[in-house]
Each structure stands twice: as structure tokens, then as C-alpha cells.
């Protein structure tokens, strides 16, 4: 079986982002870009399924500007077999992304589409669920353990109440959470090898997608900052301060 795995280019998780003074967005010029960490976990899990003999081919896909190919190359260096780049300079929101992924899914017919549970830039946490809806497939979001067995899978999900296990028929969409695995480091020879792996490119128009009605961003602002507090020197001082506030 094939696994299609989504990869998004985002501002690196270590970067402290700055809101532009004119409220037009977040400054991304000259900022380090990386693969969304949840997507790295998705790539790793797809590769592990392949290495365990449960999948034959891992295809990485990204939607974004030309530079997103860097993140596809990372996925290929990790071990993905080939990649698909849906190239656009537009801001692609989750519903449109899900429609694009649906079109690629119809073409490639993967048994599993593995996506990070959310991208750490827009924090939407929508695309996997939307793709599952459009395909009328099962979804198992926030996965922390995946056992594939023939035409079905048992997926353990990290939910507020604890760990929930679902049994789902394949094909299905799975979104990955933090503790599913620890992604491998990419070795230099693999980076060289990845340069020879194929990347197929499409435009949104070529896929015949109608972009969805979009949420309009009116302005971007910095969050309300918390007042800086004080350091206390002792437990007694702390207890006195909390008592004064009526907290203990």
C-alpha cells in the first residue's frame, strides 16, 4: 500500500515571531523555515510502517511556494520515495488544502494519508479532518500509536480524557501527535541521495480545484502582554503574597 504524507513549510519552532508594526501580518523575511514538527512525526511514522513491511511506498506532498521544495527534500532525505509539490504563492487555507489533498488522493489512491495534527504557524488543526470528510473516510486524529493490520488499523489518540483507541477501516486519514515517535536525523549521504528522487509539480488549476471561500484576515496584532511580576526571596514571602490576594 501507499502512504501519502503531508509536509508544510513553516517558521521554525525555535523562532520568536514578531508581529509587523502595521498589523499586516507576522514578519517572515529572513526567518529560518522548517518542516512543521508534527509533519516530521507523520513522515517518520509512514517510514516506520514501510520499514515494518506494512507499506510499499511513501509519497510526501506539500502545498506552497517554490521554496517549499526544501521541506520536500527533507522528507525525501528522511526516506520518502518520491514527492508531489502543488505550487502556489497564495495563502492556502485548510479547506482548500483538503480539496487539493483530496484530488491527489483520488489520483494516487493511498491507503493512509498521514498529516500533522496542526501546523505551528496558523494552529488551525483542521486539514486532516476536512480531508477525511471530503473523502468520506475514517479519521483518527491526535495519534500516539498506530497498529496497521491488513485493511484496518487500531489508533490510540491523545484526548483530554486520556488515551482513546479507535479501530478504523482503511483507507483513512490519520493526524499525528507529539508522542507518536521521535523523527530520525537526516544523514548527509541521504541528503545527496534525496536530490535524485523525483518531485512532481502541479498548479492548483491543473488539479481542477475550486478554491474554497476563505476566512479574511483583517489584522494581525501582538497579544496582550502579562504584567511583569516580582521575584520573592522566600516561601514565607510567597505565602503572604498569595494570602493577600485571597488565593490560598
Amino acid at each position: 500500500m501507499k502512504i501519502l504524507v503531508g509536509v508544510k513549510r513553516v517558521v521554525d519552532f525555535n523562532v520568536r515571531i514578531q508581529v509587523k508594526a502595521d498589523g499586516s501580518g507576522v514578519a517572515t523575511e529572513g526567518v529560518k523555515m522548517s518542516m512543521n514538527p508534527f509533519d516530521e512525526i507523520a513522515v517518520e511514522e509512514a517510514l516506520r510502517l514501510k520499514e515494518a513491511g506494512k507499506a510499499e511506498e511513501v509519497i510526501a506532498i506539500t502545498i506552497g511556494p517554490k521554496a517549499s521544495q526544501e521541506q520536500l527534500r527533507t522528507a525525501l532525505a528522511m526516506g520518502a520515495d518520491r514527492a508531489i509539490h502543488v505550487e502556489t504563492d497564495e495563502d492556502v487555507q485548510p479547506l482548500t488544502a483538503a480539496r487539493i489533498l483530496k484530488a491527489i488522493t483520488d489520483k494516487e489512491e493511498p491507503k493512509i494519508v498521514m498529516l500533522g495534527k496542526q501546523a505551528i504557524d496558523d494552529d488551525n488543526n483542521q486539514t486532516a479532518q476536512m480531508l477525511a470528510a471530503l473523502a468520506n473516510w475514517p479519521q483518527a486524529t491526535f495519534a500516539s500509536k498506530i497498529d496497521v493490520d491488513g485493511d484496518s488499523a487500531n489508533v490510540t489518540r491523545e484526548i483530554d480524557a486520556g488515551l482513546e483507541t479507535l479501530s478504523i477501516d482503511l483507507p483513512a486519514v490519520i493526524s499525528t501527535d507529539l508522542r507518536l515517535n521521535e523523527p530520525r536525523y537526516v544523514k548527509l549521504p541521504d541528503i545527496m541521495k534525496a536530490k535524485r528522487k523525483p518531485i512532481e509539480t502541479f498548479t492548483i488549476a491543473e488539479l481542477g480545484i475550486e478554491p474554497a471561500a476563505a476566512v479574511k484576515v483583517l489584522k494581525t496584532s501582538a497579544p496582550a502582554a502579562r504584567q511583569a511580576g516580582i521575584k520573592v526571596a522566600s516561601v514565607d514571602e510567597l505565602v503572604a503574597a498569595l494570602k493577600e490576594k485571597g488565593l490560598i
Binding site: V11, R16, I17, V19, V26, I120, D121, D122, D123, A213, A214, V215, K216, V217, L218, K219, T220, S221, A222, P223
Partner: peptide, 14 residues
């Protein structure tokens, strides 16, 4: 919120 709450966007639904 976006970026782990380090920015806030005001959005209009279509």
C-alpha cells in the same frame, strides 16, 4: 491566536 498565541489575528468569516 496563531503561532502558539504569540500573535492574534482578527478574521472575518465568509
Amino acid at each position: 491566536p496563531i503561532y502558539a498565541g504569540n500573535a492574534v489575528i482578527t478574521v472575518e468569516a465568509p
